[in-house]
Amino acid sequence: MKTKLVYFAWVRERIGRSDEEIEVPDGVVTVGELLNHLKARGEEYEAALQYPEAIRVAIDHEHVGHGEPLGTPREIALFPPMTGG
């Protein structure tokens, strides 16, 4: 499955790009599994996702927990805890 990923704040800075399209392997079903899969893609991903529990994820503009299934999204976003307001 081809999926668009978007990154924000220090996740974006550490990975070194704001978005990309990746092929998600069949065995990657949940949000948590996707984070583990990405972490193994190289040292910049390792640096961004060193503490996966700190990473917030949104699928098609809605927050999701790490145990949620990915489904067939248009866009998956990874970002740090939010600090607006």
Binding site: F8, A9, H63, F79, M82, T83, G84, G85
Partner: peptide, 14 residues
């Protein structure tokens, strides 16, 4: 509105 905006709206400050 402010409590939830601060913690769940996707904004980040640098």
């Amino acid at each position: 509105m402010m409590d939830y905006l601060k913690t769940s709206a996707p904004f980040w400050k640098k």
